[in-house]
Amino acid sequence: MTIAALEIDSVDVGFGQVDSRTEILANINLTVQHNEFVAIIGFSGSGKSTLMNLLAGIQQPDVGEVRMHGKMVTAPGPERGILFQNYSLLPWLSVFGNIELAVKQVFPQMTKAERKQHIQHYIAMVSLTGSEWKNPSELSGGMRQRLSLARTLSMRPDVLLLDEPLSALDALTRANLQDEIIRIWEEDRRTVVMITNDVDEAVLMADRIIALTPGPKATLGQSFPVTLSRPRDRTTLNFNPDFKTLRNKVTRYLTDINQEAKQLRKVADVTLPDLSPYDFTAV
């Protein structure tokens, strides 16, 4: 058996003092194969970002292990490129400067000319050519996320971690960037873990969708393999019965576990006031 690209092995994460501890994630197990595109879908507040931080190594689990290619992850590094939800661009650097900072650090042996070519390549890949010397504040939301993507990709990471990368964008820009990410991924395949709250997005992009149950004590639920053939075209996909079935299945599952969680969470019965509507039309 080959070693998995990414592994999460019975991980627990919580926060707070000992007496008032809240478990965010409990008993998380995940194996991502080489060059697999996995989407993790869940409701907001279920600990999606915490999960992503664990994979990136920004946060350490309280119990269990995170492994990449069989080696334990103890700190963040450029081999696991993370695309942050809020872009995390350095506002005092230009488009070029933001990517340069990463490239200089990850490939210190590059000559100046090579580096420039490398940076330009990634700027072109995300269609930002012509905006090299603009500052992030002069870019639109979509352009910022594309720049962030270019910066992440320019580090040539083995694993790409996408933390709700498109959730802050409007629908049109979002669709646009989805296509772009897929195009880039298909050109240059690698392991991807994407976190999202959009079922369509997950079905359109991923090889496998895994649900995260609502927190606290969130854990990974059912896994749905996506067998739709690639390239997937969003315009025709809407009429594809497999797509529809899968989407409905995932949505129903998510709704169900959400109901369940809500019922679980309902601790005390709320006594409603004893009131009945009064009919004013009779007066």
Partner: peptide, 20 residues
């Protein structure tokens, strides 16, 4: 987030200081 960028890039103390 900026500090996270520095951590992902594994910037040295000096680069972290002068670049971030």
């Amino acid at each position: 987030d900026h500090m996270n960028v520095a951590r992902v890039l594994r910037l040295s103390l000096w680069s972290r200081l002068f670049k971030i």
